[in-house]
Design a protein around this nucleic acid. Sequence first.
DNA 1: AGTCTTGTTCGACT
DNA 2: CAGTCGAACAAGAC
Length: 286
Amino acid sequence: MPELPEVETVVRDLRKHGLANTIILGIDVRWSRAVSGLAPAAFAKALIGRAVTGVTRRAKYIVITLDSGSRLLIHLRMTGKLRFIPAGERPGKHDHVVITFDGQRRLVFNDTRKFGRFLLCPASSDPFAKLGPEPLEDTFTVAALRGRLEGKRRMIKPLLLDQATVAGLGNIYVDESLWHAKIHPERRADTLSPLEIRRLHTAIRAVLRRAVENGGTTLGDGAANFYSVAGHRGRNADALNVFRRDGLPCPHCGSPLARMTVGQRGTHFCPACQPLLISPQTGHSA
DNA sequence: AGTCTTGTTCGACT
DNA sequence: CAGTCGAACAAGAC
C-alpha cells in the first residue's frame, strides 16, 4: 500500500535508473482504464517523442515532468508497481501500461487490483490544488498542523487520512503516528491540546522520515505488497510498533495492542497508551 | 465457493 | 458548508 515513503522510494529509484533526460519512444496501453481521461491513442500521441525533464513526488503521486510542459502523474493506489523489464521480455498478467524509453529501457506498470491511474496534466492545470502540505517539508510546522486541525470536529484518524489535511499519509503511518503521539484515533480534532498537536507533528515527521530512510514498508509476501522499482522490499516493517500487531504487547507499556474499525478502516492502537477518556477538568486526554 | 479485505475518491445524504 | 456514509474499483486470501 504505497503511502508517502513508498512513493518517495519509487521516485528515487526512477531517478537512479536515469529516467530523467530520456525520450519516450513508445506507449503501450494494455488496459485502457489505467489511463484517466484520455483514450489510449490520444495518450500515446501526447507522450511519444517527449523528453522527460524530471521525476518528483507530490503526496502519493509520482510526477514525471515533460519538455512539453505537461506532467504525467502516476498514482499507484493499493497494488500498483513500476519496474523495468529487459528488452525481449513480454509483459505479463496485470501489466497494464508499458513505456519504452530510448536506450531500450522499458518501464512497466503492474497493478493487480487495477486501482492505480496514469493522468496526463496540461501545464495550465493544477492537479494538486486541493492537497494539504508536504509533511517532510520545512513549511510543515507545528503551527501549520494546528491550522489544519483548527475547528475540525472530525475524528483525528479520518482527518489525517484526508489528503487535504496533510498530503501523503495512509493507514499504516497514521496508526503509527497516533501511537507515537499517544492519541486515540477517534479523538475529535478540536479537542487536541497544543501539547498533543506538538506530539503529533513530531510523530508524523519522525515516522515518515524513518520509513523513507528504510525504503518503505513491505508487509508479508505476495505480489500485492510493496516492491520498489528495482524489486527490493521495503525495510521498514521492523520499525512498525502497532500496525497489524493487534494482540502483541505494546512496545511502550506492554499491554496488548487492539484493533478496531474507525471510519471504515482497520485501526491499530494501544488502549492503555491512547485512551479516549476526556478529563472534564482540562479537556485533554486523560 | 462465498466472504472478507484493502485505500482512495466521489457522490449522496444529513 | 461540514461531515458522514456507502459505493465503486478488482482480485487474491482464506
